[in-house]
Structures are given as C-alpha cells and as structure tokens.
Amino acid sequence: MDGFHDLGGTQGFGKVPHTINSLTYKPVFKQDWEHLAYSLVFLGVDQLKKFSLDEVRHAVERIEFRQHANTQYYERYVIAAATLLVETGVITKQELDDALGGDFKLALPSISEGRAAIIGRKGFEIGDTVMVRDEYVTGHIRMPGYVRGKKGTVLHKTTEKWPFPDSIGHGHVNAVLQPTYHVQFSTKDLWSDSEEGFVVVDLFESYLDKA
C-alpha cells in the first residue's frame, strides 16, 4: 500500500541531514522507553506467537495518516503491537483503555486479504536486467513505491528464503518462501532531476520480471 511509511523520492521535506560514519556505532535506542516498544513487538511475534513481523509492519502501515505523522518511530510500533494484540484476542480494547486511563487509538482495520506469491517460473541471476512490477496493492507490500516500473540490475541473490510479505503480512502462515535480490538502480532513472548515482534495493522475487 502507498502511505506515510513510504515517502522515498517525495519532494518538499527539505534536505535530510546525513553523515556516513563507519567508525563508531550509535545507540539503537535514543530514549529509555524505546527498547520496551521493541520488546512488545517480539512478545507477540516470538513468545506468544500471535502474529508475524510482517503483520506488525502492516499494522504500522495501517496507522491513520495524521496519527502516523505525529508519532515517533517506536511509538508506531507500540500502536501496531497493541492493535495486533487486540485483534488476536490477547487483550480487549476496553482493557487497554482502562489500563491507560483513556482512549488508545489503534491502527485502522485491514481492508485487504493480501495476495499470493508468483510461482512456477525461473528465478533471476546476478547480472540480469529486471523490471520491478508496476503494481498498486491495498495490502502489505515490501516494495518501495519509487522503484515501481523501473529497470535495474541484479547484484546478489540470497541463499536463504523467507515468507512472501504480501501473504504472511496478512496472517497466511502457508506463505511461499522466496529469495530476495539486491537490485541496483540508476538515480537518474528513479528521479530525473537527481544527481548521478545509484540505489540498491532488496526485493522479493515476486516483485520482479525479467526485462
């Protein structure tokens, strides 16, 4: 789905302050409470086994636009995890509200059942020119919108395989396992007014066609 979570290439936000620092490691969590938000996610994913990490990502995508714009990164994962804990019956919305002393705004309900992976075709090899499928879906997808319909070159194919996000993200535990590919794109092909360069995106097999 296209939403606030996928703003790559969107104009009007000004320059992003960024420095390359390969010599030091910054803390993962910038505030004391953030590690608790991360723990809440894996409580549901691993210990309770109530949902998958892709379902958490989909719940983040389902957060209402204005709420999404006014929350921090880890706040969104608290909202997503709480939403899924309610949807899977671990806790009720009323119990959540009572514990917090007010109305806790959950993510919006899902409007899609997801979709299956493409199967029965040969995969891609390093050096292949591929085209990202020009698809617009209402459900969970792990393909950035800015590469939709663009050509790129396969740099690497993973030896491991993972459940197709568009399926597992909607609770389909029988999701097809697929490799991902590191695909290199020219920045000029992605954004005509950009500086010369390249972007590498990790993409599942079902997002790609042979060009």
Rank of each mutant, 00 (worst) to 15 (best):
T159A: 12
M143T: 15
R66N: 15
L23D: 14
H35K: 15
F65S: 14
N174M: 08
I79W: 00
H5E: 06
Y74R: 10
K150H: 10
S206P: 00
V132H: 00
S39A: 15
V130W: 02
I111G: 09
D189L: 08
F104S: 11
G169R: 08
D128W: 03
L84P: 01
D2A: 11
E87M: 09
K188F: 04
F164I: 06
F164K: 02
K50N: 05
D193G: 04
F204W: 10
Y207C: 03
I118S: 01
Y25T: 12
V176P: 01
K161C: 11
L203P: 00
R142H: 03
V201M: 03
D54C: 08
L48D: 04
A117R: 02
K151M: 06
G123H: 05
D2K: 15
V90F: 11
I63Y: 04
E34K: 06
T159F: 08
E75C: 07
A211I: 02
A37Q: 00
M1P: 10
T159V: 10
F42D: 02
G114I: 02
F204Q: 11
L208T: 07
D32V: 12
V147G: 02
A99D: 02
G145V: 09
P179Q: 11
H5Y: 11
V173M: 12
Y25L: 12
P27F: 05
H182C: 05
E64M: 09
G12V: 06
Q184F: 00
G44K: 03
P179C: 12
V183G: 01
M143A: 10
R133Q: 10
F29G: 05
Y181F: 15
L84K: 06
G169L: 05
I126G: 00
S192C: 04
K150I: 08
S186W: 02
L106D: 01
S52N: 08
Q47V: 13
S186D: 05
T158A: 14
F29D: 04
G149N: 05
F164T: 03
T19H: 09
H170E: 07
G169K: 06
V130T: 04
R76C: 10
G14M: 12
S52M: 08
Y74Q: 07
D54M: 12
N21L: 09
L53I: 14
P165E: 04
G14S: 10
Q31S: 13
L108V: 06
R115G: 03
V86K: 09
E196V: 07
A99R: 10
E195R: 13
L43N: 04
A211G: 08
W33F: 13
V147K: 00
F104A: 14
G101I: 06
D103I: 10
D103K: 15
T159G: 06
V199I: 11
T24M: 11
T158L: 13
W162V: 09
K50E: 05
S167K: 01
